[in-house]
Computed example of a mutant assay.
Amino acid sequence: MRSDSGSIAPLLPYRLSAFYIAIFCVIGSQMPFWPVWLQAQGMGGVEIGVLTAIPVLAKLIFSPLFASLGDRLGERKRLMLLFLTAALISFLAFQLVSGFVGLLVVSLLYGMFWAPLMSFGDNITLLSTRGTDLQYGRLRLWGSISFIAMSFGVGLVLDQSGDQMVYWVILSSILLTFLVTLGLPDVRVTPLGKAGKPIRRLLKDKGFRLFLMCVAFIHGSHALYYAFATLHWRSLGYSDALIGFLWAEAVVAEVVFFIFGSKINARVAAYGLLILAASTAAFRWAAYAYDPSFIVIFIFQLLHAFSFGAMHLGAMSYMNRAVSVDLSATAQSLYGASAYGLGAGVTLMFVGMMYEAWGAQAFFIMTLMCIAGTICALALRRHEKRQTQASET
């Protein structure tokens, strides 16, 4: 592995943190408020569920496909810039279409090119910080802070402006991400070549398959929250500023969790963090199913530190330990494809129908997904312990 970061090592944490700040400007404005923009285009609940699902589902196919290309070529940064350019052009096309079908096509194109970017970015971070004192959680938390600023800030601005503003904020954030990516270290690995078959090699590992199933259930259970929390809270009379605060508050808790990430990692195994994430998420969604008061929502939003933060930190810890460098980009992408594509994407396809049929009680379905995730995490723990015992004998 080689990197251009050696001559300017003191700048490395700033370059990596800047990437997370920029890409979470996109996520922090898109995740809470893209359904608002879609609703302003005349879309109903089922249509919003499908349109928010399509870019996420694209990760299921295109994230592993493009990342395995990265491992075969040994490339990271230059592929990111190519996909970012295509994503920016695709997002511009939203201004050229109208109606469900047009929005569906553009959503697929945008999601296809956006799919591998976070996986590549995380992979560059993990590879460029190996052998240093830099901690992934401390770098990633700047993304969470960015999410907080965007979700709260956009909510405040929406109270004073039209819903169309959401589109222009997201577009500007994608452009910012492109500019910041130019400054990332050009980390490369030894190319696997055409015979590498990184996806097949990883999926043959039982532990890795259990890991993928676990994160798919955990993150998939967040789909109803991602797609309809803002619209549901609006229907209850909460202002956009207050809704933005609730989203931001959840990520503040996540930031605090990441600050102590290295200490947590030293004491809790990866499967332990996944068990914590799944069980906490089950508790959280069960509470939301009863359509609780604002005070209860305020308290339970803090559990995002565990339902998402513990899952993500556990996933990074597992892959950093269990996956070799030459398969690292593909492993990152399969994690993204499973958690964000298979889990959240597939679930998003149906949450619109669930929400229209049952309202907040649809969160009970999310609770069942978390129970399944807990079972997978416990199975991973048993598998890991058997592997350890086998290696010791």
Results as ranks from 00 to 15, higher is better:
17 S>N: 11
86 A>F: 13
71 D>A: 10
15 R>I: 06
101 V>T: 15
67 A>G: 06
92 L>S: 15
86 A>K: 00
137 G>K: 00
116 P>R: 01
20 Y>C: 01
14 Y>L: 14
43 M>T: 07
48 I>Q: 04
21 I>G: 00
28 G>H: 03
139 L>G: 05
13 P>E: 11
71 D>L: 06
35 P>S: 08
113 F>D: 00
75 E>F: 02
99 G>P: 05
122 D>W: 00
41 Q>D: 11
39 Q>N: 13
139 L>W: 05
49 G>Y: 01
132 T>P: 00
24 F>H: 03
61 I>H: 07
132 T>E: 03
49 G>E: 02
50 V>W: 00
41 Q>Y: 08
129 T>Y: 00
76 R>K: 13
82 L>Q: 12
103 L>K: 10
83 F>I: 04
15 R>S: 06
34 W>D: 00
15 R>A: 08
133 D>A: 14
24 F>I: 10
73 L>N: 10
78 R>E: 12
39 Q>C: 06
41 Q>C: 10
130 R>D: 07
44 G>N: 14
94 F>D: 02
107 S>P: 06
83 F>M: 12
118 M>T: 13
63 S>G: 07
34 W>N: 06
122 D>M: 07
64 P>M: 04
93 A>H: 12
136 Y>P: 07
51 L>S: 04
111 G>E: 04
121 G>N: 08
103 L>P: 04
26 V>A: 01
68 S>D: 09
59 K>I: 08
115 A>C: 10
99 G>K: 07
129 T>H: 00
72 R>C: 12
89 I>K: 07
17 S>T: 13
86 A>E: 04
115 A>S: 14
13 P>M: 12
61 I>F: 14
93 A>E: 09
79 L>N: 06
45 G>S: 11
135 Q>L: 12
81 L>S: 07
72 R>D: 09
71 D>F: 05
105 V>D: 04
68 S>R: 11
101 V>P: 08
62 F>D: 03
120 F>R: 03
138 R>N: 12
110 Y>N: 07
91 F>L: 05
55 P>A: 08
13 P>D: 12
86 A>W: 02
54 I>C: 04
127 L>D: 06
105 V>G: 08
102 G>N: 07
129 T>L: 00
126 L>I: 12
94 F>Q: 09
47 E>K: 02
126 L>D: 02
138 R>V: 09
127 L>T: 06
89 I>E: 05
92 L>R: 13
119 S>I: 01
62 F>S: 03
132 T>Q: 08
125 T>I: 04
59 K>R: 15
85 T>I: 12
69 L>Y: 15
14 Y>V: 13
115 A>L: 08
131 G>A: 11
140 R>H: 10
90 S>E: 04
131 G>D: 09
37 W>L: 12
135 Q>V: 15
45 G>W: 00
94 F>I: 13
18 A>C: 12
27 I>N: 03
39 Q>D: 13
73 L>K: 14
119 S>V: 03
